[in-house]
Amino acid sequence: MNYDVSVDGKAHRLELARKGDQWECKLDGRAVPVDPVLLRRNMLSLLIDGVSYEVRREQTVSGLRLSIGLARYAVELRDPRSLHSWQTESGSAEGKKKIVAPMPGKVVRVLVKQGAEVQAGQGVVVVEAMKMQNELKSPKQGIVQKVMAVEGATVNAGDVLLIVE
């Protein structure tokens, strides 16, 4: 099985094959000896050269998230053979990024227009919830491909507000 994996925006190519009870694993072309055991749903014990990692998986409004210890990582996973096999909705091979409402609330201001160039970390939409205004930022540098957010509109958690390409 082959996957394109992005971890916090960094792209990796992963090749996995099961040989009996062993795994063959290549990351970015380099062989990595892995010994995985699924402890329970969404919880993996992974031994790599004797180093032990306890990895937990969550599905959040903004996509798939894996964590080890205190560190959490936004993960996107795709099987390159299939165009429709993204495990998360939050991106694609071309690097589209959807900006979603983290909580239910009201769109107060849309700060960018379609076609505008944005920097990573630049505020794009302001959403108000619980009397607090919250500026959503672009996760990457790029062009605003589409603006779904409408000023004054009520949004639910997970609603797509804007797409940056």
């Binding site: 099985m1 996957y3 994996v5 971890v7 916090d8 960094k10 990796h12 992963l14 996995l16 099961r18 795994w23 694993c25 990351l27 990595v32 892995v34 995985p36 699924l38 749903r41 969404n42 993996l44 992974l46 790599i48 990692y53 990895v55 998986r57 969550e58 599905q59 959040t60 409004v61 798939l64 894996l66 080890i68 560190a71 990582y73 993960v75 996973l77 495990q87 909580m103 239910p104 639910n156 958690a157 997970g158």
Partner: peptide, 28 residues
């Protein structure tokens, strides 16, 4: 660790496919 996460993501997809649909959004 970021590379370990990439490997883990693939292993999850094989060993524990299709994580339960996002209930964070629906539950909120």
């Amino acid at each position: 660790v970021s590379e370990v996460v990439a490997i883990a993501a693939g292993l999850f997809a094989v060993l524990d496919p299709a994580p339960a649909a996002s209930n964070a959004a629906s539950s909120i």
